[in-house]
């Protein structure tokens, strides 16, 4: 695609959208450059198939270009639009949009909140490396939609409201996804400390 004029690199999303609707290819390119990497990261939470993610991203952008003249003028956020389009596209490509989602939701709704007092007892500093490693493992083992919600919330800065619309669930479900993920993070932590302790005991024998 065309090299970006510097003015567009710094243009606001609203400006880019405006130019895109007029058929400006460099605005289109700027939007692609701005969002395709984080979209790919998000897509990887929806499927492990990297070529499927690439195909879906390509199709989302090709569609936007083809429809540029008919795109709505008052779109609030390009980013939101892209994420929601990508999610729908990937699910359509997997053709399993309905099969496993309902069950998942029921399971995720059943949440036991952890009380503040019980928890605040054990706040220790743990090493940064350990924490990162733990969270990394947790995210790969979480139910897909919990990892998806975590990514949209922490990495992509979406509000609960937007995440609900992107994921096609209500806001309460989104809060539950995040809450459950964070809860397993805490539980997993205690388990890990325990196993480290055992390991240490074994080694000191």
């Amino acid at each position: 695609m065309a090299n970006l004029p510097t003015s567009l690199v710094n243009a606001s999303d609203q400006q880019l959208w405006h130019y895109l609707r007029q058929g400006d290819e460099s605005a289109f390119t700027a939007i692609f450059e701005r969002y395709h990497r984080t979209l790919y990261n998000y897509g990887s939470k929806l499927t492990a198939d990297s070529s499927l993610i690439e195909d879906a991203i390509q199709e989302v952008f090709i569609d936007i270009w083809r429809m540029h003249a008919t795109l709505s003028a008052d779109i609030n956020s390009i980013k939101f639009y892209l994420y929601r389009s990508l999610r729908r596209r990937i699910h359509r490509m997997q053709e399993k949009y309905h099969s496993d989602e309902r069950i998942d939701e029921v399971a995720d709704e059943a949440t036991t909140p952890i009380s503040a007092t019980e928890e605040s007892i054990q706040i220790e500093q743990e090493s940064r490396v350990l924490l990162h490693k733990r969270i990394q493992e947790l995210i790969t083992n979480l139910p897909k939609r919990q990892a998806e919600a975590l990514t949209l919330y922490y990495f992509d800065d979406f509000s609960i409201h937007d995440i609900a619309q992107i994921m096609d669930v209500n806001e309460k479900s989104v809060r539950n996804f995040i809450h459950r993920a964070l809860t397993s993070l805490r539980q997993n932590r205690n388990w890990l400390i325990g196993s480290l302790l055992i390991l240490w005991l074994l080694m000191s024998l």
């Binding site: 395709h36 390509q58 922490y154």
Partner: peptide, 19 residues
């Protein structure tokens, strides 16, 4: 840690170029 670990799966430059 959450921010960093949820954003680990960016495409490689080769993937970006292919798209």
């Amino acid at each position: 840690a959450l921010v960093e670990q949820t954003g680990q799966q960016l495409p490689t430059e080769a993937q970006s170029q292919s798209m």
